[in-house]
Design a protein around this nucleic acid. Structure first.
Lengths: 252, 252
DNA sequence: GAAACTACTTGATCCAGATCAATCCTCGCT
DNA sequence: AGCGAGGATTGATCTGGATCAAGTAGTTTC
């Protein structure tokens, strides 16, 4: 993801107040003094590489993580070697919220490409949030948003056809890139077809076929990991279950 | 759900400290003084009846709700009259967490049977939580748990077969009843086959056939809404994707 | 720079579960 | 008591997407 531009790892040790993600991340809506307090508890680690883990299922929970550059996938491994991909996380997105309950990670988080990540020790964050009501409020909002987001995916997996799922996935990426001032219509996928399929509850082959089909229909141009969305409106129509040779969604 | 015992609506206006759900609900881990403060902001309304709404998608968000007796379903309606059932909520379970983000309800909540519900105005709760660290902590835990729970369902919908889904559903109900001191193996379903199917991403007919199949195999006894689980161990095996004529789960 | 992987694509076939189509309850109503 | 009207069951058929099976094109290793 991102990818097209070389990320300079010289300047990642910026403070929260200078961070370009300030409007997406925890500091949103905090006043400068409070951002500074938050900044003091945030750790900024050296860059991570493809395949590195932020944490694994079962690890003791210490910190939340925020993607600063690059991308991370979270997944629930199962005994037999399989996994369920739970999400792909872009810059500004928080990881590890499901671990607060038991103080133990409920899923694993693996870096998909060279990435930078901020680490926020939860005990400190929690304490700070009880002193700074606007931070507490922001925390509640972020947790709530995650729930809403999971519910959206639930609807996707429960009711939608394969093509609706892939269209929704691409539009979701597109909108998230846009908010980060990346191109909404021209981007690189940092995850494999396999991972996309797993996330969407589809077989790899189905994902591959759909990419070809979407391309044949002029909806997008795909070359390996490079995606160019050519007709976002039509992709949005597909998500609604409209058109596609006139059939309308039945209600269940 | 519950059902088999007539609920006396005379005594629902009990304080949190006397509530049998204290160990499942918000007050968990609070000391008596704090429970009293919480109690002051909780509203206890008259009983609700089948079909009543706690709120509808798009309503302004004011309060969280806790089921005290009975059961409630949450669902995301879609323009075309369809819906996605997001969850069934039993006594002690919190509803409305996904609405904190935008101060607007993200889904609708409808009462499945005569039920009692506590209403907790969120502004008050938030304020109290900033004064009572253990309440703040409990709030974070509850929100986090909800995220973890949604992720579990995601795995269910993404990878599991129809019979695995239904088995998981029944076991989940069973365990939740157990924690509430109801029978883990003998209970009434308050939702229709249609709603179960919708929740699990299955057609009504499939749900119905599976009930018959499970009964034929001696896993349970089903008569209309009345369910008796006869072989919980075997149901648990099904969830793992083990047995069932020797096939093992492939990994994806 | 060739070998050995691994990711991806494409085609052929298969099957779990959806959809279509009757009944058959069960319960609320008059 | 009889009558609807959903809700549930059961059977027959159909199909979207999984699975199986090659083949191809990048990528990593030495």
């Amino acid at each position: 993801m991102s990818g097209r531009k070389i990320i300079s790892f010289e300047n990642i040790k910026v403070a929260c107040e200078n961070c370009s993600l300030v409007s997406l991340c925890l500091p949103m809506g905090l006043d400068p003094d409070d951002v500074e307090k938050l900044d003091e508890i945030v750790k900024r680690n050296r860059p991570l590489h493809r395949g590195d883990h932020l944490f694994r299922e079962g690890d003791k929970f210490h910190s939340l993580f925020v993607v600063k550059a690059g991308s991370v996938k979270t997944y629930a491994p199962s005994e037999d070697g399989g996994e369920q991909v739970l999400g792909f996380h872009l810059p500004g997105e928080l990881i590890g919220l499901d671990a607060i309950e038991n103080e133990e990670h409920h899923c694993s988080a693996k870096v998909l490409e060279t990435s930078a990540v901020c680490e926020i020790p939860f005990t400190n964050l929690e304490e700070l949030s009880s002193q700074v009501p606007s931070l507490q409020h922001q925390m509640y909002r972020l947790l709530s948003r995650e729930i809403g987001h999971d519910e959206d995916i639930l609807t996707l997996l429960g009711k939608r056809s394969a093509e609706e799922r892939l269209a929704a996935f691409l539009i979701s990426l597109s909108e998230r890139f846009k908010r980060r001032d990346f191109s909404a219509s021209d981007f690189y996928l940092s995850m494999s077809r396999h991972e996309i399929g797993n996330y969407l509850g589809l077989a790899v082959e189905t994902v591959s076929r759909l990419f070809t089909r979407f391309q044949d229909e002029g909806l997008l141009k795909v070359e390996r990991k490079h995606i160019q969305l050519l007709d976002i409106d039509r992709l949005n129509n597909i998500i609604q279950g409209e058109e596609r040779n006139g059939n309308k969604r039945q209600y269940t």
